[in-house]
Write a protein that binds this DNA or RNA. Structure first.
Lengths: 203, 203
DNA sequence: TTGGGAAGTCAACAGGCGTTGGCATACCGT
DNA sequence: ACGGTATGCCAACGCCTGTTGACTTCCCAA
């Protein structure tokens, strides 16, 4: 019957006027980020995102064209890695780890990306691009032998993404409960070693 | 178009007879594991699984009741961790890492679990149970102070699952290309340290 | 030989999805 | 005051999903 009231609880015009296009675009994007983060690509429906943004689903299409495109925009993601070349060698690990932490805590974009990358091929491709280029480049500037940079960046990514996965996505209790400070202290030597230890494979 | 031929490539009766209930159950389970591994819970459809098993979708329901239940069965998962109590302390890391590796390579169950856990709450719950109990217990037997076991197990899980994620799910090139032997050599000291280093938080 | 149960097929259901196009409404420059 | 345009809603489309129940076919035991 589709008649869910004619007057829905809090319509977009409840408070009075309507929003500017900019405001609506931004509201949709915010809602999309939250939903993608919480539910992953498949379970995050356009209808739910639209409801969160207090807007009709068709508006999402008008502003972003398609769900795939909306996700691409929502997952636009810059690690904004700091320049590590000025950091003394023995502080590299700690610096990188604590930077990642302040970047993640309170920003749900990375979990969203991880959730989606697990099932959506273009999401996986995006994570791959982010980590092989952005992290790869930053690591390249810091590593002695540049040919080893990809491998070292991969190892660093494996530990950092492992933490993101267990803490934000799977929510393993010990990883959720640990304080950022403690976690940083545990992780820093690992990252440091991946960056600086001689490659054990090149005997 | 539901008419994919009427005569589909190789119908269940192509070779002649039909299968035993056991054989069909097993075929469905195998197909389910593959599909869940490749696509995750949402994108792995009952219809696709049934097609892989060369059976009607309704048979899947008859044998497993529901998709949720089929997944629960397909994701039945025992880490089968070896007893580490006989291992000399300085070999613990290497032992655990190489065990995990021989367990994963060639078995798609873990990636399936990871893919699903990223979007499906009951999948996440399952991973949580597996790692907090199975890994937690094994680590508890090996760690000096048992109250530290959960935290140490969590750290170990973060690195091991991080590798599984980057290598099998995201397929980051450097992590895919690296040989198991090299990877084990890189990871062993990390795991070893998470198991044995004094907790830096308890000053 | 025949009956009964197991194994499998078929067609349909109710509901949710992304997406579309037409229609209403409020704003704002003139 | 007014018309155009930006903003928004509504209703529907075609498709795919998990799930169901009735029907057919085969095998094997009596």
């Amino acid at each position: 019957m589709t008649e869910d009231g004619g007057r829905r609880g809090a319509g977009p015009a409840a408070g009075g006027g309507r929003r500017s296009a900019e405001a609506t675009r931004a509201a949709i994007l915010r809602a999309a980020r939250d939903r993608f983060a919480a539910d992953g690509y498949d379970r995050a429906t356009i209808r739910a995102i639209a409801a969160d943004a207090r807007i009709d689903p068709s508006m999402v299409m008008r502003y972003y064209g398609s769900k795939e495109n909306l996700f691409a925009t929502a997952a636009e993601f810059d690690l904004r890695l700091p320049d590590l070349s000025g950091v003394p060698a023995d502080r590299l690990g700690r610096e990188l780890v604590s930077y990642f932490f302040t970047r993640w805590e309170g920003d749900a974009t990375l979990p969203a990306l991880l959730r989606t990358a697990s099932t959506n091929p273009s999401g996986a491709e995006r994570v791959r691009a982010i980590f092989t280029t952005q992290l790869g480049v930053a690591v390249g500037r810091v590593v002695a032998d540049p040919t080893e940079a990809p491998r070292r960046a991969g190892l660093v990514a494996s530990q950092l993404l492992g933490v993101a996965l267990t803490r934000y996505v799977l929510r393993l209790p010990p990883m959720v409960d640990i304080s950022p400070a403690d976690l940083i202290t545990w992780l820093a030597p690992t990252i440091h070693r991946y960056l600086t230890d001689p490659d054990p494979a090149s005997h």
